[in-house]
Amino acid sequence: MKIISDVGPNFFGPGAKPGAVPTDVDQATGLERAELLAALEGKELFELKPLKITKYGTKKDPIRVKSVDPVRYVGCSGFPVDSHELLWLVLDKNHEFDRCPECGQVFKMNYIGTDSGHGHGHGH
């Protein structure tokens, strides 16, 4: 898309013309700009939808959960969904698997982060 090729790697737009009202494409910056440019390409920059549980996770075939941090929480409500009280489990990238103590469903972390940062999401 043309607008995106106008944008350099430093993530600054061209700015508004003097005397004109700027648009978001003109001068949004940082994370807001990344979100905007992805939206202009018809993509969603962030995965915010809840995980769809379409099967009962087992040790052989666990529910895989993406994570950019080495540890993350997952709420299990059994299979089918909402068949028991929501229980919060801690998934760890060093664990072979993690199991819900209520229904025995198995989750496995799919670690997609990098080990360089301290993983608290300060995106700068």
Partner: peptide, 11 residues
């Protein structure tokens, strides 16, 4: 630029 994986503002 490394993009944080969520849109929220951690102050």
């Amino acid at each position: 630029m490394i993009i944080q994986p969520h849109p929220y503002h951690l102050v």
